[in-house]
Measured scan of single mutants.
Amino acid sequence: MKHYEVEILDAKTREKLCFLDKVEPHATIAEIKNLFTKTHPQWYPARQSLRLDPKGKSLKDEDVLQKLPVGTTATLYFRDLGAQISWVTVFLTEYAGPLFIYLLFYFRVPFIYGHKYDFTSSRHTVVHLACICHSFHYIKRLLETLFVHRFSHGTMPLRNIFKNCTYYWGFAAWMAYYINHPLYTPPTYGAQQVKLALAIFVICQLGNFSIHMALRDLRPAGSKTRKIPYPTKNPFTWLFLLVSCPNYTYEVGSWIGFAIMTQCLPVALFSLVGFTQMTIWAKGKHRSYLKEFRDYPPLRMPIIPFLL
């Protein structure tokens, strides 16, 4: 059985960083990364991007050496992705923050609204209902991160945790300040508006959870398998008939419901920014589905049925 020789060059300087002799033909890129780490321990596998061309796409960890368009002496180019952190850690951090930050404003801890309001309670029912909904949303997200989601990528750049936390924590503080303010004004149409908004919120939260469970069942634990998601017997998953990412559709719907319930401008802005970002993600995933699966359902749109 022939063996391969693998040289790894710096993608920027073309400097030879490592030479691997007698590499098995069936070795994966993940195994080559581990061998590279032995000579350069500062670059652990998650930091490494190996590619066939200095400006090309990163090879997948599961790619097999003998199936790549290389000879028995293969040249790979290395790029440092920077310090990495696990997706689970990032999600837990960015979701735990809003949960606790919101509660600080809800309980009106000292130095927020003035001494005479310390630890007082709002007289408006919608304020307490909003706290329950907000807390439920982020507790749900935390539990899904721990027990439901299966991540195709193990890590992301460390800098992302600061960007994500600034976004989630900042908006949580902004909306919580106004919703729990002693001078907060309840919704214009009173109980009817709150009940309608609560119904929207609850339905969308159930829908979002149902989609996450359906997506989880598509991917076996520990794998990166991708399949076309289809509706199940659960009615909340029937939205798969019309959109590629109904989890985002339901998520946006939840925040629209919360915005109607609280009639709070920061919540509306958070919903708008979230919708914009999720639309970008949904379009990317939709394109990926179309590219990977020739039999992908043609009627589906990325996030909004028939429109977007």
Rank of each mutant, 00 (worst) to 15 (best):
180 N>E: 08
170 G>N: 02
134 H>Q: 05
95 Y>M: 03
13 T>L: 06
144 E>Y: 02
305 P>S: 03
121 S>L: 05
251 E>A: 08
21 D>A: 13
247 N>D: 05
298 P>H: 00
296 Y>R: 03
51 R>Q: 06
286 H>S: 00
64 V>I: 07
232 T>A: 10
197 A>S: 08
104 L>K: 09
236 F>Q: 03
302 P>Q: 00
273 V>H: 14
182 P>Y: 06
266 P>R: 09
253 G>D: 01
127 V>T: 03
203 I>Y: 15
86 S>C: 12
159 R>W: 15
132 I>S: 05
144 E>R: 00
167 Y>H: 09
35 L>Q: 14
50 L>Q: 01
12 K>S: 01
177 Y>K: 12
146 L>S: 07
158 L>M: 01
156 M>L: 03
178 Y>V: 06
108 R>W: 12
246 P>A: 13
65 L>R: 04
300 R>S: 03
204 C>G: 06
257 G>L: 02
120 T>C: 08
61 D>C: 09
211 I>P: 04
303 I>V: 09
93 T>I: 07
194 V>G: 14
83 A>D: 00
102 Y>P: 04
291 K>C: 08
75 T>E: 14
147 F>V: 13
173 A>T: 06
172 A>G: 04
165 C>Y: 11
166 T>A: 11
177 Y>R: 04
85 I>K: 01
272 L>T: 01
44 Y>C: 10
284 G>D: 11
200 I>C: 07
224 K>F: 03
126 V>T: 12
109 V>L: 08
217 D>V: 05
103 L>R: 03
123 R>L: 04
77 Y>C: 08
94 E>R: 03
136 F>N: 04
295 D>I: 06
184 Y>C: 06
141 R>F: 14
5 E>N: 01
60 K>H: 04
290 L>Y: 07
231 P>N: 08
280 I>M: 13
133 C>D: 01
260 I>N: 10
150 R>L: 08
192 Q>T: 14
49 S>M: 06
80 D>R: 15
225 T>K: 08
298 P>R: 11
229 P>H: 01
196 L>Q: 14
49 S>V: 03
88 V>I: 11
212 H>L: 03
193 Q>P: 07
238 W>G: 04
30 A>Q: 01
139 I>F: 12
49 S>E: 12
7 E>N: 05
161 I>G: 15
100 F>N: 10
61 D>A: 11
271 S>E: 03
188 T>A: 10
79 R>G: 04
41 P>A: 06
282 A>I: 13
262 T>N: 12
265 L>H: 09
5 E>V: 11
254 S>C: 05
203 I>V: 10
223 S>V: 00
82 G>D: 15
149 H>V: 04
170 G>V: 07
95 Y>S: 05
246 P>T: 04
28 T>S: 08
215 L>F: 15
37 T>N: 05
302 P>L: 12
129 L>I: 04
261 M>A: 01
60 K>G: 10
195 K>I: 14
137 H>L: 08
173 A>R: 05
180 N>K: 03
44 Y>M: 12
161 I>L: 14
4 Y>V: 13
289 Y>H: 11
301 M>A: 07
4 Y>S: 04
213 M>R: 09
123 R>P: 06
131 C>W: 02
111 F>V: 12
177 Y>P: 01
274 G>V: 05
242 L>K: 09
100 F>H: 01
66 Q>K: 06
224 K>W: 10
34 N>I: 01
193 Q>L: 03
187 P>I: 02
34 N>Y: 00
192 Q>R: 10
48 Q>R: 12
233 K>V: 15
294 R>G: 09
44 Y>V: 09
21 D>N: 11
83 A>M: 14
253 G>R: 02
214 A>P: 03
177 Y>W: 04
236 F>I: 09
294 R>C: 02
300 R>L: 07
95 Y>F: 02
254 S>D: 01
84 Q>I: 01
37 T>Y: 15
9 L>S: 11
14 R>M: 08
154 G>I: 01
29 I>H: 03
301 M>Q: 03
18 C>L: 14
297 P>L: 02
172 A>S: 09
97 G>W: 06
61 D>W: 00
48 Q>Y: 07
5 E>Q: 14
32 I>F: 04
230 Y>K: 14
181 H>Q: 02
71 G>F: 10
286 H>N: 06
195 K>Q: 03
196 L>S: 14
239 L>P: 11
268 A>P: 05
255 W>R: 04
105 F>L: 08
97 G>L: 00
303 I>D: 01
101 I>A: 03
46 A>P: 12
223 S>C: 01
104 L>R: 06
292 E>R: 11
143 L>P: 05
279 T>P: 07
303 I>K: 02
295 D>N: 08
32 I>T: 11
158 L>S: 08
63 D>H: 12
222 G>R: 12
142 L>F: 15
257 G>Q: 08
97 G>Q: 14
213 M>I: 09
56 G>A: 07
163 K>E: 09
190 G>M: 11
291 K>G: 00
68 L>E: 15
287 R>H: 08
78 F>S: 12
152 S>A: 14
282 A>V: 04
49 S>D: 05
179 I>P: 04
79 R>Y: 00
173 A>W: 07
171 F>S: 09
99 L>Y: 06
5 E>F: 00
141 R>S: 01
36 F>S: 08
189 Y>D: 09
178 Y>R: 03
212 H>N: 01
108 R>I: 13
49 S>W: 02
71 G>R: 14
204 C>L: 01
306 F>V: 07
296 Y>G: 06
153 H>Q: 13
31 E>K: 05
224 K>L: 08
111 F>H: 15
120 T>E: 02
18 C>E: 10
229 P>K: 07
302 P>T: 05
200 I>L: 04
31 E>V: 07
68 L>T: 00
179 I>R: 00
184 Y>A: 15
212 H>Y: 02
247 N>K: 06
188 T>M: 14
115 H>S: 02
194 V>I: 15
49 S>K: 03
141 R>C: 03
282 A>T: 06
77 Y>P: 15
267 V>Q: 00
264 C>L: 09
90 V>T: 15
242 L>H: 02
133 C>I: 01
216 R>H: 13
256 I>T: 11
129 L>V: 05
182 P>A: 02
99 L>K: 03
115 H>P: 06
45 P>H: 04
105 F>Q: 01
264 C>F: 04
297 P>T: 01
2 K>D: 06
141 R>Y: 15
297 P>R: 03
61 D>E: 08
31 E>Y: 14
22 K>C: 02
140 K>V: 14
40 H>T: 02
152 S>Y: 02
247 N>H: 10
218 L>P: 06
119 F>W: 00
292 E>K: 11
